[in-house]
């Protein structure tokens, strides 16, 4: 990315007036960068009251929910009687679902640890700074790498019988392929939008998708002995 042929980095010098900002100008954009002071509003009262109203609306919703639905409370804790299934809070059910497939060291330590590490390092590796569509350049090589990674990963998931994680992976992969097949001239519409998405977008979307699917399955579709149940058939 430091290749001067690709784009030029410019640092705005007037740091006292406006915060330091970096502009990345790629070849495809116009070399003229139009800089203009934006319209600004006073924090007080505008930001202050807007935020307050937003919080109040949320509070109103929560108060209504609290008046209507009681928080769950079960019988007194009894170490002798294990409920079946014993479920963690909902936000950990994705993890618990993974525990069903992988040994605890992997599902309980390795995966969450890697996720947290990945989240922390995101901004330090200039990920997504380019914000360039994944398939816009070097498509053949990238497709090859992409194909290898996806197939290997899917085999790995299949070996462990993790079908619930495999399906979202395949769906995301399918959209990525759709984006790859988009001709360069299409820049508008859904396909154009897809084609403009960088790698980081795809990875994060895959992660979000997996998180939602696994959590939903752990919450709604798991019954006694962590067996599969249909929530509407109880």
């Amino acid at each position: 990315m430091t290749d001067p042929k690709d784009f030029v980095a410019v640092v705005d010098s007037d740091v006292r007036k406006t915060p330091r900002r970096i502009a990345f100008i790629t070849k495809r954009t116009s070399p003229q960068v139009h800089v203009k002071d934006e319209e600004r509003v006073m924090t007080y009262p505008e930001v202050f009251f807007r935020t307050a109203v937003a919080i109040q609306v949320l509070a109103i919703i929560l108060v209504v929910i609290s008046l209507r639905w009681n928080a769950p409370l079960e019988g007194l804790a009894d170490p002798m009687h294990t409920p079946n299934p014993a479920k963690a809070p909902w936000y950990f059910l994705g993890l618990q679902e993974l525990l069903h497939y992988f040994p605890p060291v992997v599902a309980g330590v390795l995966i969450p640890g890697l996720v947290v590490m990945a989240l922390i390092v995101i901004p330090y590796f200039n990920i997504n700074i380019e914000a360039e569509g994944l398939w816009l350049r070097d498509k053949t090589r990238r497709l090859r790498i992409f194909g290898t990674v996806v197939v290997l990963f899917c085999i790995f998931l299949a070996v462990f019988d993790v079908w619930v994680a495999l399906v979202p992976t395949l769906i995301v992969a399918a959209f990525m392929l759709l984006a790859a097949q988009t001709p360069p001239q299409i820049t508008r519409g859904f396909r154009g939008w897809l084609a403009s998405k960088p790698l980081s977008f795809w990875i994060m979307t895959w992660f979000l998708f997996e998180l939602v699917v696994l959590t939903a399955i752990g919450t709604f579709f798991r019954g006694p002995g962590w067996s599969w149940v249909w929530p509407w058939r109880t």
């Binding site: 804790a77 809070p89 525990l99 309980g108």
Partner: peptide
Amino acid sequence: GYLLPWDQLAFWAVTVGSNIASAVP
């Protein structure tokens, strides 16, 4: 906070969670 009501839900959710912690090598 999940543990504080000390009901079955709390107890076993935390038991499940704390067992994950013991998987750390």
